[in-house]
Design a protein around this nucleic acid. Structure first.
Lengths: 244, 244
DNA sequence: CAGTGGTCTAGACCACGAG
DNA sequence: TCGTGGTCTAGACCACTGT
């Protein structure tokens, strides 16, 4: 849909990206200079434009920073990549933790006005509701409620949900989440939620609401998650845009 | 530094962007189709690449969405542009509120180990500390502590800080914030902070830490802000990236 | 000054959506 | 089938950094 997809497809950008990510993760020191755009273009038999799209994207993800006239440099690793659409599983693995779930429940309900509006389906359509406690290295991190049009995931079973929901959607149902709108709010945990996350009542937490879309713009998921505030932060790189 | 700057400079992208933002804000209905890339390129005497950079950027900002084969469409307005580097003042004005400050204090301190490291200056260098309660339509929204190398803002006075700090930096000191690394945490308000924001103790809040850079990569600001959780949310559009 | 990233041109072909 | 956005080519010139 935008240049992000570059690396998903089999284009040249993908190879350039893999190479550069390999460099970054494979031992380049922070603030070390990356190869120049022109060198990379020649090395991969492509043009600067292609290389630039990849480097700009890596810049957005906070993995490199670029300075006109000087070069492109490896960022310090502390900046996370929270402005990607990632599954909880991938997120935890990227942090070196082992993701898992507790007490996964699946039910089918009718959408009603609320979920109907959010998923843009009829209020009478069936919706699959998945509730899970997500854990990392055995520690509860997040309470997750996910709602999907039942027509998208016929016959979804609990046992398919060991790992990443998005992986399951893609592997078993050919549905791919490409984009999402996400809203993050600050909240405190009430008794039930606090117990489920093994933290004291009134602990700070994030409430994250998300609507995910596939490449055709169809809404495929509405999710509400509660993340422990003591274990989570959102780290991002932001740029100044035009004054509009 | 990246394509964002396009619209800051006087290039053709700027004109295209202004035109498109004008269309979006000037009455196009949500989900209405925007002009095609080829039409825009012809209209502005430029190429598709230039138009595409602008449209991709607007997509990232959540103002339009794009579907291959179908076109580019205006987003529903509810998605905010929180992944921009904006000042509190601009942010509030974009929401239709009148920004202001209460109890602004400026002091000069020596950086010490902490601010020295964060601003990458010597611990003995002077640092300007600005503390303010930011208000919108007279209502306290946010507590802001901002630290800048004193050498960047010689002679900065309280009276210059009526509006946006970033505007003051640019207008009076030629310093422009182009990029920032930002970390958002969930927290609860203790007594003093709760009183300053006129909310009950233990209310949920965001703690936002930010290091701002200019185009040359120099650190120009370290800021810690506490935002009321009941008045604030972070809304963003996120895309799925390569698997890496 | 040489070399880097930033912007832009003028095309091309492909993948996909809708009629 | 036609028009859309997605990817890519092979150049060009400019702005800026660092020596």
């Amino acid at each position: 849909m935008t240049s992000q997809d570059t690396a998903l497809s089999g284009g040249k950008s993908a190879r350039v990206r893999q190479y550069l990510v390999g460099l970054i993760e494979g031992g380049m020191e922070p603030h070390a200079r990356m190869p120049t755009e022109r060198d990379l273009a020649e090395q991969f038999g492509t043009t600067r434009l292609t290389v630039r799209r990849v480097l700009d994207q890596l810049g957005h993800e906070g993995r490199v920073y670029r300075t006109q006239g000087a070069g492109t440099f490896v960022s310090e690793p502390r900046i996370a990549k929270s402005v990607d659409l990632t599954s909880f599983s991938d997120d935890m693995r990227a942090r070196g933790l082992k993701p898992g779930s507790l007490g996964t429940k699946i039910e089918s309900i009718s959408a009603g006005a609320d979920f109907g509006a959010r998923l843009q389906i009829s209020p009478r359509d069936a919706v699959i509701h998945i509730a899970r406690v997500r854990i990392a290295d055995g520690v509860p991190m997040c309470l997750e409620h996910c709602y999907m049009p039942a027509s998208l995931v016929p016959g979804l079973e609990v046992r398919e949900l060991q790992g990443s929901l998005y992986e399951t959607l893609w592997r078993d149902f050919g549905v791919r989440a490409d984009k999402a709108e996400q809203s993050i709010r600050a909240t405190v945990l009430d008794g039930d939620n606090a117990r489920a996350l093994s933290v004291p009542e009134f602990s700070p937490a994030f409430q994250v609401e998300r609507i995910a879309y596939d490449a055709r713009g169809r809404r495929i998921e509405y999710a509400v998650s509660i993340y422990r505030g003591d274990r989570y932060s959102y780290d991002m790189v932001i740029y100044r845009n035009a004054g509009n």
